[in-house]
Design a protein around this nucleic acid. Structure first.
Lengths: 189, 189
DNA sequence: CTCGGAATATGATGATCGTTCTAGCACCGT
DNA sequence: ACGGTGCTAGAACGATCATCATATTCCGAG
């Protein structure tokens, strides 16, 4: 890998880190280059689109990685109930390990920039689309098909996103656990 | 009402408006005094705590008002199914009327500032606590009691919050509607 | 070894951020 | 009408914001 490529990768990783914790407007370019230990002068060389482009690509990257981790966690489950525990447990662990600073790595930026930045909104759309597809596959696992599976996937994703929001505000995993109990009842597992 | 009181009220109302659409760091004090048509010099006279205090009090205010509107919408419902429609319909209308700029008026700021501003986080905590109590009362309406009602209230709130997030990203009320269909099945109404 | 483009360094740009300061206006009870 | 205080006007603070221009270094291909 060439030098430029590594700089780019480090910038995107650091940006994903910072955006998840502080949001879009709360994260400055100066902080990004510092955290990435990257050359300040080459920011606009690698990302001519400026901050919007950096944020959008960082969002896609962190979403792709999260999706991968969730997928492997789901594959390791031996029952639908286990899979649900794996899903919620993954996020609960992230919350605890970060002192409730890290919930959904996309949500904050998505809400901030959905109305003002088309590239960022489209990146969030892509990430949530992929996650929704994962949730719909999960719904297939409990015997749902067609529209019912789509609805269920979207509802599961909504519930988890909302629970992650409330968990950060309450500084507690209780919303995740309560949602887990209700989802388990809903799915009959 | 004295002059100072009216200035304070206008500032809080304008701030609630702006925070809901642009978040905490995306909203500047200059924009607030402009939107409120309020005197810039008296910002720190009325709110010595600065931006944090203004945001926290605006959040509580908008949360209180929203809770009132939701409560009256719920009282007008003649069945549990109607009540659910009223709940989701209220937010769907907000989204449509604002071209999908206005979802949950608290969520963006809550995510941005939960980890960095204690006053803002506590304000969000208070608002969500009141809303959760409303959702739990709703759960009582379908015959649930005790822990089951608490879990259901928290899960309903989580689902709606998540659906509002996804709706803004997708620029569509579909997440709200899908969640509504699933919730109706879950509640058996 | 050399040459040329890729990548980085440095610093300045104007704008806006939140905050604070000092005057001075407006309105109150007396 | 008067004094006093509740409130406002307006500017200035240093800091930081995103962006960009220019100069310099790196590195691989020929």
């Amino acid at each position: 890998m060439k030098k430029g490529e590594r700089s780019k990768a480090r910038i995107l990783e650091a940006t994903g880190h910072l955006l998840a914790r502080q949001g879009y407007h709360g994260t400055g370019l100066a902080q990004i280059v510092k955290e990435a230990d990257a050359p300040r002068g080459s920011l606009y060389f690698h990302f001519p689109g400026g901050k919007e482009e950096i944020a959008a690509r960082a969002l896609v990257e962190v979403g792709r990685r999260t999706r991968g981790e969730l997928a492997t966690a789901l594959e390791g489950a031996r029952s639908v109930g286990d899979a649900l525990d794996a899903l919620l447990g993954y996020f609960a662990e992230q919350l605890r390990a970060s002192d409730f600073e890290l919930g959904c790595p996309v949500a904050t930026v998505a809400l901030e920039a959905a109305a003002t930045s088309a590239p960022v909104r489209e990146a969030a759309l892509e990430v949530y689309g992929a996650w929704q597809e994962l949730a719909t596959r999960f719904a297939h696992g409990v015997g749902l098909e067609g529209d019912a599976a789509n609805d269920m996937g979207l509802a599961i994703l909504s519930t988890i996103e909302g629970a992650l929001l409330l968990a950060r505000v309450q500084r507690s995993t209780e919303p995740l656990e309560a949602s887990g109990r209700v989802l388990r009842k809903l799915l009959g597992v």
